[in-house]
Amino acid sequence: MSNVMSSSPENSRSPTPPNPGPHFVGRGSSLEPESRFSKQVRELDLDEVDRSLQEEPEEFSSGKIKTIFYEDLSRSIVSDNDSPDLSFRYSLNPYRGCEHGCAYCYARPTHEYLDLNAGIDFETRLFVKPNAAALFKEWIRKQKTTPDFIAFSGVTDCYQPIERNLQLTRACLEVALAARLPIRIVTKNHLVTRDLDLFRKMNEHGLIQVGISLTSLDQELTRTLEPRTGSPKARLQAIRELSDNEIPVFTMLAPIIPGINDSSIPELLEAAKEAGAEGATYTVLRLPWSVEPVFVNWLEENQPSRKEAIISGIRKLRGGKLYNSKFGERMRGTGIMAEQIHQTFQIFARKHGLNKPFPKLNNSQFDPTCGAKKQRRLF
């Protein structure tokens, strides 16, 4: 891996996050929670702070930290998922880590496998797969059976800011189009509309569905909870543009957080419908492993007066705990509060016509040669 570019307790008491150290503008977390796998303890390297701030040390406490990108020379690009909670078997992720910096992101602990932390490292030390398209094409050519579809953003957002420059997601979409392989995308960014030209071609063969994730219509909330994602207005605009181009588009209310946005379900569904969404789904907040201290720290910094009530609400979803990893329960929760969220969602999804089953993607035209008809398959 080499540097390629840079840019700017489950007990009854409320958990206390580690000392976060300096706070960085535009980041979801300033924490460096201890990794489950690392035996080393790291301290913040002040040289990583934006050098432009060194002349103004009084601003360091609210300074900026650079995002550093590394080449990920993995030999695979598609993951095979066997979770009964997921609607897909295969997922593709051109990026590891996510600059969006969402305080609640369930994918944060994946960075611990890289000997990095799930806090500030997850959103400032990112790994990109420059040969993503070639790896995807190689995987397709080896398929002996036809995949149902591939999920883009099964872990981290495939349209996070760096995609604007690297266009790895777009390159993989071009491979999928050539192979007539269906794709389902979930993203928080308006950048997805850049690829409308490809989506229109894919849609001619029933190969594309796009989901836009909505958390809140409150810009002030999303600015801290999801600091580098598209604004609520931009996400609704993305739904509108996709719908206007007849691209099948749905919304995902994710995550639903008691005391934060559970009361916003009706207005979120109404706004999505008005923008042109054809369907909707939801998940509730998940706090596995090191996500918990990151989110609790966000509460302390941004919702201090409501922290205890919000944590109490989360416990009501999880049988008194902050997280329950049991299949069939982790995505929706259990108990009276979980049922209230479910019923509210169902009532308003039905009201706005967003409760209908989404049409199946078409994999009947799958071409593992990716259009190279003159070449014979080796396997």
Rank of each mutant, 00 (worst) to 15 (best):
G319V: 06
E99A: 08
G206I: 04
K316D: 15
I239W: 08
Y70D: 12
D85I: 14
A349M: 13
K129L: 13
E300L: 10
P18A: 10
C172Q: 06
Q219S: 14
L46R: 02
S231L: 09
L31T: 04
I183F: 08
R125A: 12
F24E: 01
H342P: 02
S76E: 03
L114F: 12
H111C: 10
L92D: 00
R96H: 03
R200E: 07
I77F: 00
L361K: 11
P20H: 02
L166K: 07
V25H: 04
E123P: 02
G211N: 02
D115A: 15
N324R: 02
A349W: 13
F199L: 09
K144Y: 05
P33Y: 12
L221E: 02
N3S: 14
S62M: 11
V284S: 07
I208L: 06
T281W: 10
V128R: 04
H342C: 03
R350N: 09
E138L: 08
F37Q: 00
L86I: 00
S7L: 14
D50E: 09
Y95G: 02
L114E: 13
D157Y: 00
D148S: 14
Y95M: 08
R376T: 10
L53E: 10
F250P: 01
I247F: 06
T146G: 06
P57V: 12
P130N: 06
T145C: 06
N363H: 13
H111N: 10
L73P: 02
M337Y: 14
P266T: 14
P288Q: 11
F379I: 15
L92Y: 00
R377T: 13
S231T: 15
C105L: 07
Y70E: 08
S83D: 00
S38W: 01
E329A: 15
V186D: 03
A107Q: 11
P248S: 13
A275D: 03
L285N: 06
L354E: 11
K321Q: 13
R228C: 15
Q143I: 07
S8Q: 06
S2A: 09
P33K: 04
L242E: 05
N11W: 09
Q340N: 04
P293D: 08
S14K: 03
I120V: 13
M202P: 09
S14V: 15
G320E: 05
T124K: 05
T110D: 02
R89I: 12
I260K: 00
R194L: 11
Q340K: 08
P368A: 11
F345T: 13
S7H: 06
L168Y: 13
K373P: 09
G154I: 00
C370P: 01
A176W: 07
T224G: 03
E226K: 05
R228G: 06
Y104E: 05
M1A: 14
L317S: 12
D197P: 01
D148N: 08
V291H: 10
K356F: 04
F348K: 03
K360N: 02
N93A: 07
Q340E: 12
P288W: 10
K39V: 15
S38R: 05
H190S: 13
G211Y: 15
G119N: 04
R42M: 05
E204M: 05
E138D: 15
